[in-house]
C-alpha cells in the first residue's frame, strides 16, 4: 500500500483509497460480479445454456448485494436508484434490478414453457440489460475526470470484453461434461475473447502512458510499483497467458482436455477480478500544488 503522509495529501500524487482499501475492496468484487454476470448471460444466450443463465442471474444478484454491503447505510440502499439522470452508480443499480426481473422471468419461461414468443421477448430484453450490467461499472469509473488512469473511453469496452471472457470461462466450466466438439467450440470463443481482452489491456495501459502525467505515473505504478505482482501474475500470466496457452492448441483440433480447459477457465476468472483490482488500486489524483 502506497502510504501518503498527512502533509503530503494532495501535495504529491495521492492514491485513490475509498474504492479499494478496507470495505472499498467490495467495489472491485461488485464490478467483477456485474461484468461476469452480463458476459455470462450473453454467452449463455448464444450457447443456449440454461445453467449459465441461472448462474448469471445469481452473479447479478451477488453484484447488487456486494454493492449494498459496501454501503455504510445499507438500509438506505433504495436511495441508490434515485438519480439515474446523472449518476452511473444509480443507473447500474437500476440495471441490475431490471436485469434480475427480466432474466428471472426468462429463466422461468425457458424452464417451464420453452419455445413461445414471450421467451424470445424476455431473452432480448434481458440480453440488452445484461449488456448494461456488464458495461455500467466501466462508465462509472471512466467518467471520473479526477483520476486520469480511469478517465478513458477504453474502460467501458475493456470491462465488457473482460466480462465476456469471464462469462465464457464460466460457460466452459459448466459445460466440461459435454462432448469434445461442443467444448472446442466454446474454447474457440473463449480464446477469441481472451485475445481481444489482452489487446485491450495492452492498449489501455499503453494509452495511459501518453494521456497525462498522472495517468502515466499510475500506469508505471501498476507495471513497476507495489501492485505490479497483481498485474503481471494475476492479470497477465494467470488471466491471459496461461488460459490462451492452454486453449490455443485445441482450437484447430476436435479433441478436448477437460483439465486444460478447466484450468484455463479458472485462470480467466481470476484474471478478471485482478484486472478490476489493479485498475481501482492504480487510480491516483494529481497533486494540487503547482510544480513549476
Amino acid at each position: 500500500m502506497m502510504q501518503v503522509k498527512p502533509w503530503d495529501f494532495m501535495v504529491k500524487y495521492t492514491p485513490q483509497r475509498e474504492w479499494i482499501e478496507g470495505h472499498g475492496i467490495l467495489v472491485a468484487f461488485a464490478m467483477f460480479f456485474g461484468g461476469v454476470s452480463g458476459g455470462l448471460y450473453l454467452a449463455s444466450l448464444f450457447f443456449g445454456n440454461l445453467t449459465g443463465m441461472v448462474i448469471a442471474w445469481a452473479l447479478a444478484a451477488l453484484a447488487g448485494l456486494v454493492d449494498m454491503a459496501h454501503l455504510s447505510k445499507r438500509m438506505r440502499f433504495w436511495r441508490m436508484m434515485l438519480k439515474p439522470g446523472s449518476s452511473w452508480i444509480s443507473r447500474g443499480f437500476i440495471l441490475i434490478f431490471l436485469f434480475l426481473g427480466a432474466a428471472g422471468i426468462q429463466i422461468l419461461i425457458t424452464w417451464l414453457a420453452p419455445g413461445n414468443a414471450w421467451e424470445i421477448l424476455f431473452k432480448v430484453v434481458a440480453g440488452v440489460l445484461a449488456f448494461g450490467v456488464a458495461i455500467y461499472s466501466g462508465f462509472a469509473i471512466g467518467i471520473v475526470g479526477a483520476i486520469k488512469l480511469w478517465n478513458s473511453g477504453l474502460v467501458p469496452i475493456l470491462y465488457v470484453v473482460s466480462g465476456l471472457a469471464g462469462g465464457l470461462a464460466v460457460v466452459m466450466l459448466v459445460s466440461l461434461n459435454q462432448d469434445a466438439a461442443s467444448l472446442v467450440t466454446i474454447s474457440n470463443y473463449l480464446l477469441a475473447a481472451l485475445v481481444i481482452d489482452a489487446i485491450f489491456v495492452a492498449t489501455y495501459f499503453w494509452s495511459a502512458t501518453y494521456s497525462s502525467v498522472t495517468a502515466r505515473d499510475s500506469a508505471v505504478r501498476v507495471m513497476k510499483g507495489k501492485i505490479a505482482p497483481a498485474f503481471w501474475i494475476g492479470v497477465v500470466v494467470l488471466g491471459l497467458i496461461i488460459p490462451i496457452a492452454l486453449v490455443a492448441p485445441f482450437s484447430l483440433s476436435q479433441s478436448a482436455s477437460t483439465v486444460a480447459f478447466g484450468i484455463a477457465a479458472v485462470g480467466a476468472i481470476i484474471g478478471g477480478i485482478m484486472l478490476r483490482y489493479v485498475i481501482l488500486k492504480g487510480g491516483m489524483y494529481s497533486p494540487l500544488l503547482p510544480d513549476e
Binding site: 475509498e18 474504492w19 472499498g24 459496501h70 455504510s72 447505510k73 438506505r76 441508490m80 494529481s286
Partner: peptide
Amino acid sequence: DKCVGCRYCMVACPYQ
C-alpha cells in the same frame, strides 16, 4: 439523512 456512504462523490472530487 440521504447519504448511503457509497463514497462515489469522494472518488469523483478532483480536489479531494
